[in-house]
Simulated assay, not measured.
Amino acid sequence: MTSDLIRHVSPEEEELAQKEAELAALESELAERELGLATLQAELHAFEREYLHLIGSRYAELDRIEAQIIKYMAYMENN
């Protein structure tokens, strides 16, 4: 006659297994969200670089035009 050992799982072991599964799911979700955050940060950095390049050149042009206006106004006051 063969005797099979049947292991009974205690409520504490069941709860532990459930908590471990929840932890694994939360860790997976955290990893996905961290990846999403890193992606958004990279996209934001690229946007900032492009924005500063474009706006920086526009501000330089504005400064040049304003300097010309000041020069012209000074010329007109003296004549």
Score class of each variant (00 low, 15 high):
residue 31 A to W: 13
residue 25 A to L: 09
residue 74 A to H: 09
residue 39 T to D: 03
residue 25 A to F: 10
residue 21 A to Q: 11
residue 73 M to L: 13
residue 58 R to K: 14
residue 33 R to F: 10
residue 77 E to L: 12
residue 11 P to R: 14
residue 16 L to P: 00
residue 10 S to Y: 00
residue 4 D to Y: 14
residue 56 G to Y: 02
residue 66 E to S: 14
residue 35 L to I: 11
residue 40 L to H: 03
residue 48 E to W: 03
residue 21 A to F: 07
residue 49 R to A: 14
residue 28 S to Q: 13
residue 60 A to C: 04
residue 60 A to S: 10
residue 42 A to I: 14
residue 67 A to H: 08
residue 44 L to S: 08
residue 54 L to W: 02
residue 21 A to M: 07
residue 49 R to T: 14
residue 50 E to L: 12
residue 42 A to N: 13
residue 67 A to E: 12
residue 19 K to A: 06
residue 51 Y to Q: 13
residue 77 E to W: 09
residue 30 L to R: 13
residue 10 S to E: 10
residue 22 E to T: 05
residue 39 T to A: 06
residue 47 F to A: 15
residue 44 L to T: 10
residue 66 E to A: 15
residue 77 E to H: 11
residue 27 E to W: 02
residue 48 E to D: 10
residue 43 E to S: 07
residue 39 T to K: 04
residue 43 E to D: 12
residue 78 N to K: 02
residue 2 T to S: 06
residue 6 I to M: 08
residue 78 N to H: 02
residue 38 A to C: 06
residue 39 T to L: 05
residue 36 G to D: 03
residue 43 E to W: 01
residue 60 A to D: 11
residue 57 S to K: 13
residue 47 F to S: 13
residue 79 N to L: 14
residue 14 E to S: 09
residue 38 A to Y: 06
residue 67 A to L: 09
residue 43 E to V: 11
residue 62 L to W: 08
residue 46 A to T: 10
residue 58 R to H: 12
residue 1 M to P: 03
residue 33 R to D: 01
residue 47 F to W: 10
residue 1 M to D: 06
residue 54 L to R: 09
residue 16 L to Y: 01
residue 75 Y to W: 11
residue 11 P to D: 14
residue 19 K to R: 15
residue 62 L to V: 09
residue 27 E to M: 03
residue 4 D to T: 13
residue 23 L to C: 09
residue 70 I to M: 06
residue 25 A to Y: 09
residue 22 E to Y: 07
residue 27 E to I: 02
residue 15 E to I: 04
residue 58 R to W: 13
residue 65 I to A: 12
residue 76 M to L: 15
residue 45 H to Q: 11
residue 41 Q to I: 15
residue 74 A to P: 01
residue 2 T to F: 08
residue 75 Y to I: 07
